[in-house]
Design a binder for these strands. Structure first.
Length: 485
RNA sequence: GCCGGUAUCGUCUAGGGGUCAGGACACGUGGUUCUCAGCCACGGGACCGGGGUUCGAAUCCCCGUACCGGUACCA
């Protein structure tokens, strides 16, 4: 039975990179019929917070990455917060010391820092010099009697540590470059290496899928598995997501929190599709995949070895593609929160004006790439509270067009059916009668009614705006331009 | 510095001992339309460098270079 986990540290919101790692784990579990565990690595009490935990949970829920074991849902290996599993780590550290695989270290942080700086100033690297590993039993007893604070360090054996990475192939590290790392701090808090290995063993993880930045941590952890007499899981280190400058994606690059993308009007299914294709490929030319297709095609072998640059334009395109495929009813539901935020929503849109609202969605949907754009694009049809674009007015509402425009308003007021085809016929015959190019009258009418130089097809727009609004706006525009000109 | 990883159009990638090196985003040109978006057509654009191995290398091997990551009593 396949078991994988996503183990974020709640020191920040769920960011793009973390979301992609979570997604790969989730896709793998779902494809393999395995179990997906969410474990919160909050051993760093200083930097962890409940707010961040809920931020991560919200992000995963938004993306639809449900976990089989973890916070809220529980599970057989509960608890799933490392801060509640401290005793396990302390016992494991004690076991290591008892077995001679680790030793107490009484070195102070200050002395370690000085040695490291001294070594580095000569241009060399520094690994722990094993001062405390060389302590005699009496020396240790003396320090214990004095109640000296001590950390627990893992005794790295000689040799070479290797592991077969499912993405990169075999990777080997000479143990000489791995220092005797701390597994339990002097305040009895475990370090990452200890807690992650103890938990992955305890929770029976079969695969560890995580970021490339963990490759150099892996030999330390493999050594720990061996010391515990446990077979390491299979590792798959996935490439990192970079910003346009090829540096790791960070705040500097703009939005990095997954939830920020929700606010920006992206669809979770688009985000999932886009993220999945960042560093992974199903192998063919297909770019747009549903959640089920992603699951059925996902394989660790398809993960590429190199880091990937986050390309916002491509995300926009993917989002647009998903948006266009949404039925009007669904699009309406997605857009509602954005209209509410703009104060443009009325409950009538889901009752008496439902049909009108769906027609509005159908009219504007093809022209937007993100949900938040709808409110802005459709604003003139949702409220009278909008501004006329100065440049558009100057360009299209020239004095000579005002009289025809006024006449058109009169015809529109009287036309028997306020439907697009009828409106178009009306406008075109007036244009012909006046020897005007229809386009001129169309543009003038568009600016008068919407205040803008661009909109969906004018006649469909007018039909939805409604006779009263159209006629009064046309007259108001004529009046405004006449008096100002 | 040391250790590890990676290298195909600007970006995401397919492919992989013999291909016209394919697709997508972006970009350019043209078409459609009342504008914008869209859509359609067309176009420019890549195998990091050097050595091997081989009849043949972008593909396999080595070296170099570049980039990324790690080098903590952070995770």
């Amino acid at each position: 039975m396949i078991r994988v986990r996503f183990a974020p540290s709640p020191t920040g919101y769920l960011h793009i990179g973390g979301a992609r790692t979570a997604l790969f784990n989730w896709l793998f579990a779902r494809r393999q019929g395995g179990t997906f565990v969410l474990r919160i690595e909050d051993t760093d009490a200083e930097r962890s917070s409940w707010e961040m935990v809920s931020g991560i949970v919200d992000g995963m829920r938004w993306l639809g990455l449900d976990w089989d074991e973890g916070p809220d849902v529980g599970g057989p290996h509960s608890p799933y917060f490392q801060s509640e599993r401290l005793e396990k780590y302390r016992a494991a550290a004690a076991q290591l010391v008892a077995g001679g695989r680790a030793y107490y270290c009484y070195c102070t942080g200050e002395s370690l820092r000085q040695k490291r700086e001294a070594a580095e100033s000569t241009g060399a690297g520094w690994t722990y010099d094993r001062t405390c590993c060389a302590l005699s039993a009496e020396e240790v007893a003396k320090r214990e009697a004095a109640g000296a604070p001590r950390a627990v360090r893992f005794r790295v054996p000689e040799g070479t540590t290797t592991f077969a990475d499912l993405v990169h192939g075999p990777i080997a590290f000479p143990n000489a470059v791995i220092e005797d790392f701390v597994v339990l701090r002097s305040d009895a808090q475990p370090t990452y290496h200890l807690s992650v290995v103890v938990d992955d063993i305890d929770m029976r993880m079969t695969h560890v899928i995580r970021g490339d930045d963990h490759i150099s941590n892996t030999p330390k952890q493999v050594l720990l598995y061996q010391a515990f007499g446990s077979t390491p899981p299979a590792f798959a280190h996935v490439p990192l997501i970079l910003g346009p400058d090829k540096k790791r994606l960070s705040k500097r690059h703009g939005a990095t929190s997954v939830m920020e993308y929700q606010r920006l009007g992206y669809l979770p299914e688009a985000m999932v599709n886009f993220l999945a294709l960042l560093g992974w490929s199903p192998g063919g030319d297909q770019e747009l995949l549903t959640r089920d297709e992603l699951i059925s095609k996902f394989a660790l072998e398809g993960i590429s070895g190199g880091n990937a640059v986050f390309n916002p334009e491509k995300l926009d395109w993917v989002n647009q593609q998903f948006l266009q495929r949404l039925p009007a009813e669904e699009a309406a539901a997605r857009v509602e929160p954005f209209l509410r935020a703009e104060g443009l929503w009325t409950d009538a849109f889901s009752s008496t004006r439902r049909a009108w609202f769906l027609a509005l969605i159908a009219l504007f949907k093809p022209r937007i790439r993100k949900l938040d754009q709808f409110a802005n694009e459709a604003r003139p049809l949702l409220t009278d509270d909008f501004v006329h674009d100065r440049a558009a007015v100057d360009k299209h509402l020239q004095p000579e067009i005002l009289e025809p425009l006024e006449e058109l308003a009169r015809l529109f007021e009287q036309v028997d059916s306020f439907a697009a085809p009828r409106l178009e016929a009306t406008l075109r015959s007036l244009a012909e009668a006046r020897g005007l190019k229809p386009a001129r009258l169309i543009h003038a009418t568009r600016v008068a009614v919407t205040g803008r130089a661009t909109s969906p097809g004018l006649f469909e727009t007018l039909e939805l705006a409604g006779r009263e609004r159209v006629v009064s706006r046309m007259r108001a525009a004529v009046a405004a331009v006449s008096s100002s000109g």
